[in-house]
């Protein structure tokens, strides 16, 4: 698989984008709706006009026609051919490459085994479930052995459970094949689960390219932090190992119990929407439970972001409006808040 390089890519949406994707790497293009993620994918495969250069192993592919770029593209709506059964959908790319019958059959078998879709071969797309359609579309993209795989929010239309399962499956498959991949999503949780590195794009500009952890703990500027939901980050000075993968960390006046099985825990972070807020003292052991006073509330449609002032740090929490009203919360009110163990991220 080649190393992909985007050099000063610009068009009506994208502005001077440069990034290198290593051989076999899974880069997630992360950004809000309308940021230019799909446009960038279209540029790479030649579907949108652009200035700058796309290079595969140092060779520009800008003048190569779309049909000969050898790119796999999983569209948001999958675009499975409705008039072809699963088998003919999967081998479509191989047939256009004029591969021999034996070669086509061997590759089809390989894809069926890899994606566990052998039992679907005779069916038409209309007779497939959402998850099955995703797997067939992925098989069709992978069958011609593309040099680069592009995925445009492929799991968007699925329910949360199927989505999570397919994410894990997808990563396994892509890593097994070693195919260089660009995966587009607007969901940070999906991005960090799937990607080796994330590229945050906002208003057509690449704001930051780094590992999920680096981006979460050290967002490059306000735009990235805002897109990530302005996570609460605690600087930790020392920690005590409790066993069973748990540590108790001293983070600027907060004693936080977190899951950590590596060395040198220096930061703990949590997203505002993961914090549990209550007016009354919650039941259970007082682990990761703190007190503070609401000093600000900002309403965004059905969600309210509140700032909770504590002795040492202001904490952002995001809760549903109906919960806010049910708890009778307001500015000036003392509250309890809990940092759930499973939602804490360490660095």
């Amino acid at each position: 698989m080649p190393t992909i390089e985007l050099k000063n890519i610009s068009n009506f949406v994208c502005r001077d984008i440069s990034v290198t994707i290593s051989n076999g790497e899974l880069l997630v293009l992360l950004g809000p709706t309308g940021a230019g993620k799909t446009t960038l994918l279209n540029i790479i495969c030649g579907l949108a006009p652009y200035e700058g250069s796309v290079l595969f192993d140092g060779e520009p592919i800008d003048t190569i026609p779309i049909s000969r770029r050898r790119i796999g593209y999983l569209f948001q709506d999958l675009a499975l051919f409705p008039h072809l059964d699963v088998r003919r959908n999967i081998i479509y790319g191989l047939s256009t490459m004029k591969r021999g019958h034996n070669q086509i059959e061997a590759r089809l078998d390989e894809m069926c085994t890899l994606l566990n879709i052998g039992h679907l071969l005779g069916r038409y797309p209309k007779d497939l479930s959402g998850g099955e359609r995703q797997r067939v579309a992925l098989a069709r993209s992978l069958a011609p052995a593309p040099r680069l795989l592009l995925l445009d929010e492929p799991f968007n239309s699925l329910d949360i459970k199927t989505r999570k399962y397919l994410r894990i499956e997808f990563k396994r498959i892509v890593k097994e094949l070693g195919v260089t991949t660009i995966f587009v999503t607007h969901d940070f949780k999906e991005a960090e689960e799937v990607g080796d590195r994330l590229a945050v794009i906002e208003s057509g500009r690449l704001e930051q390219v780094a590992t999920p952890q680096e981006i979460f703990f050290s967002p490059n500027g306000y735009k990235v932090a805002d897109f990530l939901g302005s996570p609460n980050i605690f600087d930790c000075r020392g920690y005590e190992v409790l066993g069973n993968g748990l540590v108790k960390a001293n983070c600027g006046g907060f004693t936080i119990v977190a899951v950590w099985d590596k060395e040198n825990l220096s930061k703990i972070a949590i997203s505002p929407e993961d914090i549990y807020v209550s007016r009354d003292e919650p039941p259970g052991p007082p682990i990761n439970r703190f007190r503070g006073t609401i000093v600000e509330e900002v309403s965004h449609n059905s969600v309210i972001t509140i700032t909770i002032k504590t002795k040492t740090k202001d904490i952002l929490a995001r809760i549903r409006k109906e919960d806010f009203l049910a708890e009778n919360l307001s500015v000036g009110r003392d509250v309890f808040f809990i940092l759930p163990l499973r939602n804490l991220k360490g660095a």
Partner: peptide, 21 residues
């Protein structure tokens, strides 16, 4: 839908193949 034509093109189909298939 244009999506099907794009998909076929990316999968290596020529204009004539897109028309036929």
């Amino acid at each position: 839908p244009k999506g099907f034509i794009r998909a076929a093109e990316i999968l290596g189909a020529s204009r004539m193949e897109i028309l036929k298939t």
